[in-house]
């Protein structure tokens, strides 16, 4: 059964492939063509994430009961990324066509560059960069950056070109005037 909880301010394209119990936090943007499939348990996505086209976020059935997949805030999943990692922190960037396997755990500020494939059981330390065709690693020193400008732009432009799902989750605290106005009136 599909139950999608969308927090106010989130912009979710109406024809995305959403299956199972999914919670999408406020100000998160889900582009057309993204797939979020929660078969093996609920998927909880935090605030201010960008989930781009053709991204697959998959919580697969593994026959050991229900497992919750949690994704933090301010993450960016770029085009055609494939995510099976059960725990992702904040401020991570998953570049196009990157693959995160089931046993991988991302902390904060990690950057997985394009086409890199991480499998096995591993927790990446904070600010890890996985780059290059051979998957070399290093720790970067940049500050955590949020995608505020990009989010603002998408939030304004998205409803002009796509139909989006109406937020159906009641805000936990009293919403500010800004976030109310951002919850777009466009419905299916």
């Amino acid at each position: 059964m599909t139950t999608v909880k969308i927090a106010p301010g989130a912009v979710v394209y109406s024809k995305c492939d959403l299956q199972g119990d999914i919670t999408i936090g406020s100000h998160t943007i889900v582009h057309p063509g993204a797939r979020i499939i929660a078969k093996g348990g609920p998927i909880v996505i935090g605030d201010c994430n960008i989930i781009e086209e053709r991204v697959t976020i998959l919580n697969e059935e593994r026959g050991e009961g229900q497992h919750v997949m949690t994704i933090g805030s301010n993450n960016v999943f770029e085009v055609d990324a494939h995510i099976e990692a059960m725990k992702i922190g904040d401020y991570n960037v998953i570049e196009p066509k990157a693959h995160l396997g089931y046993g991988i755990e991302l902390t904060n500020g990690c950057i997985i560059s394009a086409m890199n494939r991480l499998t096995g059981k591993e927790t990446l330390p904070e600010k890890t960069v996985v780059y290059g065709s051979s998957g070399a690693r290093r720790l970067h020193t940049e500050k955590f950056t949020s995608q505020a400008l990009q989010l603002d732009f998408l939030r304004k432009m998205f409803p002009n070109y796509h139909t989006i799902l109406r937020p159906n989750k009641k805000p936990e605290s009293a919403p500010s005037a800004k976030s109310e106005s951002l919850a777009s009136p466009a419905v299916l």
Binding site: I111, S113, V129, Y131, G132, A136, R138, H140, T141, E142
Partner: peptide, 9 residues
């Protein structure tokens, strides 16, 4: 832009 090295390091 690949490995996020910068001159401040």
């Amino acid at each position: 832009s690949v490995c996020h090295w910068n001159s401040r390091e």
